[in-house]
Structure formats: C-alpha cells, structure tokens
Design a protein around this nucleic acid. Structure first.
Length: 859
RNA sequence: GCCUGGGUGGCGGAAUAGGUAGACGCAAGGGACUUAAAAUCCCUCGUUGCUUAGCGACGUGUCGGUUCGAUUCCGACCCCAGGUACCA
C-alpha cells in the first residue's frame, strides 16, 4: 500500500473535528499546561512564517498532552489593524467583510495543517463582545489616572488629510501620494506604562524562562540611568535651564548649551529677537528630519544660535545657547550641556561654530591640548581644570560631584528612564473605539459602563483623502453627556491594536464570559499564566512589554491573579525572503514576478533586500502548494527540520522532497513488516540479544532519550527528527528476520512503535494512521510518551581520540569502564603514537574522560 | 546611529559545560534494478598536496589574544537580520 498523505490527512482531520478532539475544560485533578502561539493578523492567507510558528507550538502542545498534562491550546484573530482599512480604500471592500473573509480562509488553512486547537475558544478582537471589556478596562484606567490625554505629534499627509504610520512614510514622503510628510500636533490618549517601570524592570530578573536576549532588550528599552539634574542659570533675567546628565564629571568642561529644536524653549528664547525668523525656519526644517537620521553619528550636525546665554553653575562662565537637530525633546529635559572635549558630537558642533573647548579629563599617559585636538577624548582619565576635583579619577568622582551639586543647591541626583508612556490613540476607523465623550460643560467624561460597548459603526465611507472616517459620521459623533445629559461629542480616535493583543490570552480562558469584567476569575486562576508562549523575535519589545504592563494593570484591578502573563517564552526566528519590486507597480508577490518580470508591465523586477515575510512587502510564500503536493505532514516536518526554531530562516524549497521521502520511507518499512509483526508484542524489559538486533534495540532507546531531551529541554526539533531518521536507517540496515523469530520481530516492532510515538507530535496524521494499522484502538495522540531504558541505551565501548599537542593522531576503542591510567598508557603505546613520540620529551598527558588523550611534548 | 542577535562544505544545518568539525538531510556524481523511465536500493562527496589500499597540510566571516587544545572564551573590525515606540 502506498503512502497517500492527502487521503490520510483528511480522514484524521475530519475525525478530530467531529470528536472535538482538542477541546479542554478545567480539571483540578490534572496538571494544566497553557501553550500559546502569538495569534495571527488575518491578512488573507497564512504564510510559511505562520506554518513554522504554529507547527512549533503544535508539537509542544501534543507532546505535553502525551506527557499527561491538561493542555490549553487556543487560537484566534488579531483582527483590527491597518491593512483592512487599506483594503477598504484600495478595493472598496468593507473592513468587516474583508476581515471575516480572511478569517474564514485562514481558518480552513489552519485546520488543513492539523493543528490541535480547541476551536471552541476561537476569538476575533474586532467583535464587540471582545472589545467591550477592553473599553471597560479603559474607563477604569482613566479613573485610576492610568489613561490620560496629552498633546503629541503624528506624521501627517496634507493631501490625503490623514495620519500616516511610520511604515507609510517612505523617505519623508507619503507612500500613497508622494507628498512631503509634515508633523501635526494632536491631543492623544496615553497609557501610563511609566507607573510600572520599576516593577517591569524588577521582573526582568524574575523570569528565568525568557530568553536572555529578550530581557536584555527590554531592560535597555526601559533604559534606567542614574545621573544628576543640573540647573544652568540664565545669564540675564531669572530662571535656569535644567539638564539631565550622567556625566557630571565633565561639568567643568561644559562650554555651551544645546536645546532640541522642537523644544518650546527654543521659540521662547528667540521671541522678539532679530534671529526669531531664522529660528522658526530652522525649527520647521528639523521637524521634517527623520528622528533616527538626525541623531545618527554621520548626519550633518546643524544648529542655530538663539542669541541667549546661560551660566555654567560650577565655573560661572557664560555658555551660548543653541538649538540643535541632534538633540531630542522627549528624552531627559530636552536640553543637553555640551562638553566638546569629551563628546564627539559636541566636538564636531564646537568646531563648526568655533566654540570654546576646555579639557577636563586627561589621559594618564599624555596631556591633551584643546587647541590641537582632532577628536573628543572619550576614555577614562584624571580630572583637570575642575577646581578641587582635580587629580581624581573621572569614574570615581561621579558621586563626589553629585554630593557637591546637592550641597550647593545647584543640582540633584535623579534617575532617568528611556521608557515613555504608551500612546494608544489612532486616528483610524478599524480599531476599538475609545469610550470617552467630550461635553462642553463637563469636559472629558467616560461613557457609562451600562452603555458599553461603544460599537464601531458599519456605515462609513473610505477614501484616500478621507481623514478619520469616524469623525465624518454625525450619528456616531453626536451624543449626550453621560453626566449632565447635555449635547456632547464622542471620541473618534480608536485604540492601538497592541491593546487587544495585551489581554487576548486572558480571554481564551473564558472566551464566552459575558458578565463583568468579561474574564472568569476561577477559570483564569486555573489556566493562567501561560506556561509556554511562542512567537516571533520581532515582538521582543513592544507587544511583550505592553502585555506585561497590561497584566499588571488587570491584576491591580483584581481581575486576574498573576504578576506576569508568560512564564516561558520561545522566540522563533523569522522566515525571510528577498523582496521584489517593479519600478512602476511597487512590491510584487513571487508569482507576479515570474521570470524576473512584472506581470502587469513586463518591466524587469528589482530584487531587494532579504526581509521578514510580510504582506506589505509581498515577499510571502503561501503554503497551499506544499500541502497540495506533499500534504500537511511534509509541510510540518520540513519547517521543523530546516533549522532550530530560534534561528532565522531564509526561505527555500530545497529539501522538501527529502522530508516527503523520509515519511514515505517510514511508511514503506511499516508496510513491509506489518503482516509479520501484527501478532507479536513490542519488546520490553531486559532481553538477551546480539548482533544487529542488539544494535537496533540500543539505537531505539538512545533515540527515545535523544528526542525527549531535544524537545523537552531546548525545542530542537531538527535534531530530534535527525535522530528518528537515523533510527529508520538502522531499521533498514537490519537483516530481515524469519517470520517465526518472534524475539527478533518484537525488537523490530518496538523500534517501529517508538518511531511512531516519537514522531506523533510532529506528523500527527501519518502516525495516527500507522498506529491504527498496528492494531491500537486508542489514538496515538492520547498514547503516553515513551520512556527509555538506560541499561538498553548504554554503550559498551567508546572511541578515545589520541592527540599530540592538540592534533589528532590516532583513535582507539576501549570498554566504557576502562581505567583512566590504562587509557593513558595505551594511548602512548599505540603503534602510530609511539612511532611519533620517538625521541620526544613528554611534558604531560591530559585525559578527558570518555573523549580524548592529549600528549603534550616539547617542540 | 542606538539596542539585540547571527555568520560553519555547493545548500539547510550538527557538534547540549573549552575536547574527534561537517551528524541528519538536500543538491551533485557513480553503480544496481528496469526494454526504458519513474520510484527504490547501494557507494562517493570540505579544500588541497604527496611517493594515493595510505599519509599530511589547510579549513567554522576577517585580524589578533588566552589555552595542552578554540566553531565554542576575550578584544577589534566586516557583513547580514530584527527592533527603534502608528506594520503586526
């Protein structure tokens, strides 16, 4: 009988669906395991990146189930977001329709992959029954001061009359019409994530199940730094410019002051002075520069003197004040003291504007001359020109200068964080409405809890020059004030989609709960936290940090009982592919660029950078062709075999044949032995064997050991699969035993059964079928994970490598329990070795147990 | 730019606590079976040299260091990828 993957897969998928095979409920008697993969945005079709992510998760879910856990493995849809709105503008299709069609299609694709989801828990974040609770939490956050409004700037295209996402800005121009992007200041809603900074930071060291690198990234993102806030009094008039610095050791060398161009202080200082007009022009120009670019080391440093001076608080010297493009308004105080001798950017600026340089840190081995310096001296050294701090090491003087500033009342120790509050306002349609109302009398008032949800209206018009569709709907905008009953207007901004993804894992625990607060505490207490979260490394900071924050907020509301949402995190690498672009028609899907030419105009396609697969870059591969040609099992094993999960993968179909061939090979050897082994039972316990049967049985148990640790300890499915391939190769190598040799056939049967059990989480369809063919009534998915017998798995001999001065010279085979001294002696007595050692002086002999002997000789 | 990772044969990768570099698979070449093809099975397969059943040199992005011994640890550099707060 031939391996027919499509028929087998459809048979088992139908059975799983009918039986709701993966439906779970709380069971206090069984240990729970909550396995979660990051839910997908319903962009249209699943791509290989999804297949990889969800296959990894499915293997772990199925493995844990076989290990006896009560496994929660849910799926849903991150259904709000910009692509739906873009589709509405470009293809005149309503986001609701577009989203639901995409969900329907992608759901079929996921089911066709055989993933073990509890589909009864499926959620879509665009449904009012989901986001109504988010609106409730929003109101509570407003009450607690955790959500507030403040002025903040956005990218804006005047022609399209719309706010642009960073992704929609291409080289400073609007992606749709090419108009230059401008800055617009709006009143926007923020979540006060900074209220939890310290706790978020503290728990970075309390989550051992997270990858070190993600924690490092989050810590750096929060960016706690210790320093001083120093007052620089204005030379004329009153007041002082406050500056945050971590380098108070260089304070005596501060010779001028830099203010971020967009800082309000800039226009205040220039006001009424001859330079006012030029300053205004400069500020406008800088606002258009990309923030990333303008702070870059290589970007032209620009500045403009504001015709004002402040005083260095320690030297009393006058410092000219400049507006500068390389200082950012939103970090620290937006003002920077410039120390040109010890900061490269300040140095370049000083040279350009011919500003004074004072050396305050001197290297130990030479003297610096400010007049002849060609670059800033940024290393450690001894303080000079720094009053009574002269002679002290700069790294040790930080505390002393901080004390001095505090004593003099000229500054104070402060802690500065890089983390900013989370701006959640979006001037878009396809998102959860913010449940607030503006009343002329009462101000900004929350919608009454009983009036939730504020449902997103359907009857909107989309156009490229649209502005916010919600703001154009009088029926939606005009309402009554919940407080005074007078006329009022609704908030027309919607929430950032990261808000939905900050609590969807809670909702999965009680997806149908329709009583306040939408989360059933008893069920959450059973399932939460997520035991294993799996998703792309690209979410290392934003999504994961926001989810951690939101969890703490919900905890403080008493809605949930955990401090952190995810106990263990696996960040899988991305599936990447080169991008393809037509000079006229923009990015192209792979099948639109056949033969290197655009399918529309025939122009040569430009091959771009290799980047993560995403719909906006169109460098996606639809896995349908894999499933159609080879079946879901091949697609699954191929994705896993290609690389370990945490590694990035540049997409290539090379090797998919090999994966299919392996499954066929497994099938064939089963088919071959099936008649002979049907009636024998699988080998178990100690059996006296020799020859290739002994080798096979040892290999079988070594494979169980290897696969178990590869999955359990490090999720390295590629090496687990290799190990099973080796076992199958060993099965092929065994001489066919006679039909009445039941001992031999029981060993064969054991090897075959173990291969099926070990592969069951990876390729569930073929293994279900083979398991059934062996005569098992129960599903392989419910079979217990096998244990190995250490006695059977152990080797009797080992290979010891013999080196001379670290170079491999010979090998020998010795019993595993051989005495160390005997091994060392035997190594030196070895024919090849003794010949090479003739006349040499042996300095020492190193024996690394079970590995090698290294004989060190005089050269 | 900044923060975080990564770089090993023709290709994907393996080497789990510093100890045999290249497991397993793909591609390629050769052979068996076949009228033939497909499928299958077997063999070879890092580079290079020599006196070629064998023996040696070189080899894990580049350069340097630590060590008896470095893909693994340290330093500098190059390249690639992710994030960079409105893609998700």
């Amino acid at each position: 009988m031939k391996y027919e993957p499509i028929a087998i897969e459809e048979k088992w998928q139908k059975k799983w669906e009918e039986e709701k095979a993966f439906k779970v409920t709380e069971d206090p008697q069984t240990k729970k395991y909550y396995l979660l993969e990051m839910f997908p945005y319903p962009s249209g079709k699943i791509h290989i990146g999804h297949v990889r992510n969800y296959t990894i998760g499915d293997v772990v879910a199925r493995y844990k189930h076989m290990k006896g856990f009560n496994v929660l493995h849910p799926i849903g849809w991150d259904a709000f977001g910009m692509p739906a709105e873009n589709a509405a503008i470009e293809h005149k299709i309503h986001p609701t329709k577009w989203t639901h069609e995409n969900i329907d299609h992608m759901k079929k694709q996921l089911k066709r992959m055989g993933f073990s989801y509890d589909w009864d828990r499926e959620i879509a974040t665009c449904e009012p029954k989901y986001y109504r609770w988010e609106q409730l939490f929003f109101i509570w956050m407003v009450e607690k001061g955790l959500a507030y409004k403040k002025r903040s700037s956005v990218n804006f295209c005047v022609k399209c009359d719309t706010v642009l996402a960073n992704e929609q800005v291409e080289a400073g121009l609007c992606w749709r019409c090419g108009t230059e992007v401008t800055e617009k200041v709006l009143d926007q809603w923020f979540f006060k994530i900074t209220a939890y900074t310290e706790e978020l930071l503290e728990y970075c060291d309390k989550l051992p199940g997270w990858p070190e690198r993600v924690m490092t990234m989050q810590k750096n993102w929060i960016g706690k730094s210790y320093g001083c806030e120093v007052d620089f009094p204005m030379a004329e008039g009153v007041g002082a410019i406050k500056v945050f610095t971590t380098r108070q050791d260089t304070l005596f060398g501060a010779t001028f002051m830099l203010v971020a161009a967009e800082h309000p202080l800039v226009m205040q200082l220039a006001k009424g002075k001859p330079c006012e007009g030029k300053v205004r022009q400069f500020v406008e120009k800088v606002k258009k520069q990309d923030k990333l670019m303008r702070t870059s080391e290589y970007y032209e440093k620009e500045g403009l003197f504001l015709d004002s001076y402040c005083l260095n608080p320690l030297t009393g010297k006058e410092m000219p004040i400049y507006a500068a493009n390389f200082v950012l308004a939103d970090y620290g105080t937006g003002c920077v003291m410039a120390v040109p001798t010890h900061d490269q950017r300040d140095f370049e600026f000083a040279k350009k504007f011919n500003l004074p340089l004072i050396v305050v840190i001197s290297p130990k081995d030479k003297t610096l001359d400010a007049a002849t310096m060609t670059e800033a001296y940024v290393d450690e050294g001894i303080l000079v020109n720094s009053g009574h701090f002269n002679g002290m090491e700069n790294t040790k003087v930080l505390e002393a200068i901080a004390d001095f500033l505090e004593a003099q009342g000229k500054g104070r120790r402060t802690i500065q964080y890089r983390l900013r509050d989370w701006g959640i306002s979006r001037q878009r349609y396809w998102g959860a409405p913010i449940p607030m109302v503006t009343c002329g009398k009462c101000g900004i008032v929350p919608v009454d809890e009983k009036d939730l949800p504020v449902v997103l209206p359907e009857n909107v018009v989309f156009s490229p020059e649209g502005g916010s569709p919600l703001a154009a709907l009088p029926d939606f905008v005009n309402t009554v004030c919940p407080k005074c009953g007078g006329p009022a207007t609704r908030e027309t901004d919607t929430m950032d989609t990261f808000v939905e993804s900050s609590w969807y894992f809670d909702r999965y625990c009680s997806p149908d709960c329709d009583t306040k607060p939408g989360l059933d505490r008893a069920k959450l207490d059973y399932w939460m936290p997520v035991d294993q979260y799996i998703g792309g490394i690209e979410h290392a900071i934003l999504h994961l940090l926001y989810s951690r924050f939101y969890t703490k907020v919900l905890r403080d509301f008493g809605v949930i009982g955990v401090d952190e949402p995810f106990t263990n995190l696996l960040t899988q690498g991305m599936v990447c592919k080169e991008t393809m672009k037509c000079p006229e028609h923009g990015y192209l899907f792979p099948d639109q660029a056949a033969n290197g030419q655009c399918y529309l105009c025939g122009k040569d396609v430009i091959i771009g950078k290799t980047e993560k697969m995403s719909k906006s870059l169109k460098n996606v591969i639809d896995p349908d062709f894999l499933i159609k040609t080879y079946g879901a099992d091949t697609a699954r094993i191929f994705c896993l075999f290609a690389a370990p999960p945490e590694k990035d993968l540049e997409w290539s179909e090379q090797g998919v044949d090999g994966s299919f061939r392996f499954l066929s090979r497994l099938w064939r050897i089963f088919d071959d032995y099936l008649e002979d082994i049907k009636t024998v039972s699988s080998a178990s316990g100690p059996i006296a064997l020799d020859g290739d049967l002994k080798v096979l049985r040892r290999k079988t148990h070594q494979t169980i050991r290897k696969v178990t640790t590869d999955i359990e300890d490090r999720f390295h499915f590629n090496t687990a699969i290799s190990a099973v391939m080796e076992l199958v190769n060993a099965l092929y190598a065994v001489k066919r035993p006679a039909k009445d040799n039941s001992t031999a056939l029981s060993v064969i049967r054991e090897a075959l059964e173990m291969a099926v059990l070990l592969l069951a989480p990876i390729v569930p369809h073929i293994t279900s079928e083979l398991w059934q063919m062996l005569g098992h009534a129960a599903s392989v998915a419910d079979a217990p994970w096998p244990d190995f017998d250490p006695a059977v798995a152990s080797e009797e001999e080992m290979t010891i490598v013999v080196q001379i001065n670290g170079k491999l010279r010979s090998r020998m085979t010795v019993p595993v329990d051989e005495d160390a001294e005997k091994i060392k002696a035997d190594a030196q007595a070895d024919d090849k070795i003794s010949a090479m050692l003739k006349g040499a002086k042996i300095l020492k002999v190193i024996y690394v147990p079970k590995k090698l002997v290294n004989i060190v000789v005089a050269q």
